[in-house]
């Protein structure tokens, strides 16, 4: 994975659950249908999910991704081209799903209560462990060695030798 990630912010709040991030009616083995459901029930943000979000970095609050284990709810971030998700804290299953799919999930406790505007410039330095948002710097937590090796491999299937492709080339959920 890349040690330095730069992109535009996609800002979400606290306790944002997988049912609203990706409603179950968009569950499918068809990537296009999965992609079309991104942010499908996030109040006031429904149309934002349809934008071109390639390269976006999600900034979120506490307990991001609470709810269902349906991995389509994590995979849709990959399909949308999101580069990384940074949150004050994550719900357990969602964190595992995102990391397993090779998408960096980064804990940044200082994001609690901080809501910058969408599309502000974000710089995520995984070596210096610093998140920079509109010039403000926040420390990020290091990964446990287990997650570091998974991330370095590009995902759990890659680390286990079950896949040689990166998540972006994968055709299956």
């Amino acid at each position: 994975m890349k040690p330095l990630v730069e992109g535009r912010a996609l800002v979400l709040g606290d306790n944002v659950n997988t049912d609203i991030l990706h409603p179950s009616r968009f569950y499918s083995l068809d990537d296009k249908k999965v992609r079309s459901g991104f942010l499908g029930a996030v109040d006031g943000r429904e149309s934002d999910g349809q934008r071109d979000l390639t390269g976006a970095i999600v900034l979120a609050g506490e307990n991001f991704g609470i709810g269902s284990s349906r991995e389509t709810g994590a995979r849709v971030f990959v399909l949308a081209g999101v580069q990384a998700i940074v949150a004050a804290s994550f719900a357990r299953i969602f964190y595992r799903n995102v990391m397993n799919l090779g998408l960096p999930a980064v804990v940044c406790p200082a994001l609690a209560g901080y809501r910058p505007s969408d599309d502000v410039a974000v710089r995520l330095d995984l070596i210096s462990r610093l998140l920079t948002v509109s010039g403000r710097q926040f420390p990020i937590e290091p990964w446990d060695p287990h997650w570091q090796r998974v991330c370095d491999a590009g995902g759990l299937a890659q680390w286990l030798g079950l896949s040689t492709s990166t998540h972006k080339a994968s055709q299956d959920g």
């Binding site: 284990s69 991995e71 299953i93 799903n97 397993n100 799919l101 287990h146 759990l156 299937a157």
Partner: peptide
């Protein structure tokens, strides 16, 4: 509970971290 990729690894190896 676990997501599908964790279960993929579990079905293939018998283990989960």
């Amino acid at each position: 509970g676990f997501g599908s990729t964790d279960i993929l690894g579990l079905l293939a190896t018998g283990k989960v971290w």
